[in-house]
């Protein structure tokens, strides 16, 4: 659990972060979102004390970060930054093994852990561990960056616009990866981004920041439904808020479930239960139908989703 209590940071005359208080529960993903210069990165960097806070206190699992030994604090927080920050003169294996090495794990255990993480991130190709960062694509490099942050199994993950420099397709793949890792590992995560869609996608709770102040701290759905100010409303885009909302809900939660799974009619297009209502809606629009069959992972039809159900879930 991470608690910020009235945390401020001053750069000369400028108050970059102004008395922010928020709580990130254990296992939750908190996304700090706002335009550049709003203080979101500064807030993140105060948690691992890359920047000292000017006022207020930050507690990690009830303990003030300023009372914790700096190295111990940081070794227990995975840190991912934009543009990876991988060491160019180290191989993938050595980069990922950085923190375990600092913690003086035995060689064999580090090697084992590196293989484990490469598998987790889908990078377990032959010879990949011996590559240098300049031989990787942007997406691969950022995966390695995430693997490096997870290496010593830290309790907390700090991510500073990790996917900001990637192209749209790679970014989406990595966001999906993040959701999978979140489900698998359940790390307490603080994630900084300027992309509201990314925030809506990944967050359990979103902290909207503007000019150093915390404007609203709420679940994604609440942010969409009840924006606290005009600023938040503009940020989430008042025009397509409805569509964004459908993007937050799973087909599985809104559909009408069959009593028994049925074999699938292969001619009719369908959606899967873990897909979003937005995807279902898009498919309906495209196909010009009122309802779609819903499949499970094995392809059996387990229910049906209709326009009315999407409408009912949409507000």
């Amino acid at each position: 659990m991470i608690e910020l209590k009235g945390v401020s940071r001053r750069f000369g005359e400028v108050l970059a972060v102004n008395a922010i208080s928020l709580v990130v529960e254990t296992g939750e993903v908190c996304v700090l979102v706002g335009s550049s210069g709003c203080g979101k990165s500064t807030t993140l960097r105060m948690i691992n004390r890359l920047l000292p806070s000017t006022a207020g206190e930050i507690l990690v699992d009830g303990k003030n970060v300023c009372d914790t030994d700096l190295q111990t604090l940081r070794l227990n927080m995975g840190y991912v930054i934009q543009g990876t920050g991988l060491f160019p003169h180290w191989t993938v294996a050595r980069n990922i093994g950085l923190v375990p090495g600092l913690l003086k794990w035995p060689e064999a255990r580090i090697r084992e852990r590196v293989d484990e993480l490469l598998q987790l991130l889908g990078l377990d190709q032959e010879g990949f561990v011996d590559k240098y960062p300049h031989q990787l694509s942007g997406g691969q490099a950022q995966r390695v960056g995430v693997a490096r942050a997870l290496a010593a199994d830290p309790n907390i993950l700090l991510m500073d616009e990790p996917f900001g420099a990637l192209d749209a397709i790679t970014r989406e793949t990595l966001q999906n990866e993040m959701l999978r890792i979140k489900q698998q590992l359940g790390k307490t995560t603080v994630f900084v981004t300027h992309d509201i869609d990314e925030a809506l996608r990944l967050a359990d709770r979103i902290a909207v920041m503007d000019q150093g102040r915390l404007i609203q701290y709420d679940a994604p759905e609440a942010i969409l439904r009840r924006p606290a100010s005009l600023f938040v409303e503009t940020l989430v885009g008042s025009q397509d808020r409805g569509l964004k909302m459908t993007g937050l809900q799973r087909v599985g939660d809104a559909m009408q479930r069959h009593l028994h799974p049925r074999p699938r009619d292969l001619d009719k297009p369908g959606v899967r239960e873990h897909e979003t209502l937005r995807q279902a809606l898009s498919l309906m629009l495209w196909q010009g139908t009122e309802s779609l069959p819903v499949m499970d992972e094995d392809g059996a039809e387990i229910g049906i989703i209709s326009r009315a159900q999407i409408w009912a879930g949409g507000h």
């Binding site: 890359l50 111990t72 070794l75 840190y79 920050g85 060491f87 950085l98 923190v99 700090l158």
Partner: peptide
């Protein structure tokens, strides 16, 4: 900064 943030 990456190295520092990682605990070096």
């Amino acid at each position: 900064e990456a190295g520092e943030g990682m605990g070096m």
